[in-house]
């Protein structure tokens, strides 16, 4: 993989130039009490003081609300205005942690499963992902148990690793990344050969996700196990909404007068009404069954049907959970039980 060097001053120039060239630049920003991905208008808005952002980077390709098309009703006539694909901006997403970047792989496997969701794919195609290796981790991180690592290049177009002098090692991962580097070639200099590995956070691999995959199918029928696992779970959607690979959605209409639009918005398998039939019958009527669905989807159905794992070990769900449903612990308990 081709390596280059980007000084901190050149990094500032790069971002400033991208903004100047009308790229939509999305970066981790400290807003009020939280750090999240937001569109920036100046380099100074960026922060690097985070383990991971609260919400995942998926919002760039799978925003929490997406207008699918517009319509207008006049008497008995209905006209539809298709999605304006030209409106999707060229974007650069910076400061993406390797776990998050890898999440796009899982997400894409869902949105491209036989029928291609062109809204999602166009958004992702027009986004260049500049990853940022992790130099610190916390008790929630478990990427190394989930086939990732704090310096993994998978999913990024370019991966930056910050050195102790504040400059960055640049790894050019994809053609898209190479193009961006070529477009601003004067900002990148020759690689100094720094040891990337020593700059990375240490994340202990407490289990192997392969063991979860091997075991979880045999647990499906064990109702008592899932009831106990989910006792604490209060059935909100926080875990799914912050997850980089959760793709479940709802489709809703919003209208005012005769005009309106159909919207795709986030939904969660943890919510009790998610699968409720109009008849009142609910195939997943208790939280144990819903929690099972969440884990089975990630560690059984996605591997089986889409050849990908639905978890990247970012630990966001556990951080966001009001009752500390720590997913890594639950994985380990699947292996042990």
């Amino acid at each position: 993989m081709e390596r280059k060097l980007l000084t901190k001053d050149s990094y500032r120039s790069l971002i400033t130039k991208l903004i100047g060239q009308n790229y939509q630049v999305v970066a981790p920003v400290k807003k009020d009490t939280m750090i999240d991905f937001l569109k920036i208008s100046s380099f100074d808005e960026i922060t690097e003081d985070y383990i991971v952002t609260v919400s995942s980077a998926k919002t760039v390709a799978f925003p929490r609300n997406e207008k699918l098309f517009d319509y207008e009703k006049q008497n008995k006539k209905l006209t539809q205005q298709d999605y304006d694909f030209d409106s999707i901006p060229q974007s650069v997403l910076i400061g993406v942690r390797p776990c998050d970047a890898f999440g796009f792989h899982s997400l894409s496997s869902i949105f491209c499963w036989d029928s291609i969701d062109k809204i999602y794919t166009t958004r992702l195609e027009r986004t260049t992902i500049i990853g940022l290796s992790c130099n610190k981790a916390d008790d929630y991180c478990f990427c190394t148990s989930a086939k990732g690592s704090p310096g993994s290049t998978a999913g990024s177009d370019i991966l930056l690793t910050k050195m102790t002098d504040g400059n960055y090692i640049v790894e050019i991962v994809t053609e898209k990344g190479a193009k961006l580097v070529a477009d601003f070639s004067d900002l990148f200099t020759a690689d100094g050969g720094a040891d990337k590995e020593s700059l990375l956070a240490k994340v202990a691999a407490n289990f192997s996700v392969d063991d979860v995959l091997a075991k979880i199918n045999s647990k499906f029928e064990d109702e008592a196990f899932w009831t106990e696992q989910a006792m604490r779970c209060i059935g909100c959607g926080a875990c799914a909404y912050v997850c980089p690979t959760c793709a479940c959605f709802d489709i809703q209409d919003e209208s005012h007068g005769g005009k309106g639009h159909r919207v795709r918005c986030w939904d969660s398998c943890g919510l009790s009404l998610f699968t409720l039939h109009t008849s009142g019958h609910n195939p997943r009527e208790n939280q144990g069954q819903r929690w099972r669905q969440r884990l089975m989807h990630k560690f059984s159905y996605m591997p089986d049907r889409l050849n990908t794992i639905g978890c990247v070990g970012c630990g966001r769900c556990s951080r966001a959970c009001p009752v500390d449903m720590n997913i890594a612990e639950h994985c380990m308990s699947i292996i042990e039980n």
Binding site: F249, F274, Y301, D304, R305
Partner: peptide, 24 residues
Amino acid sequence: LENRMKCGFGKCGRCNVGKTYVCK
């Protein structure tokens, strides 16, 4: 089978019975 669905093409995540997607 009937299960609650939103998309009809295996993305919205509701209709699966185990790993079987009723829609697909």
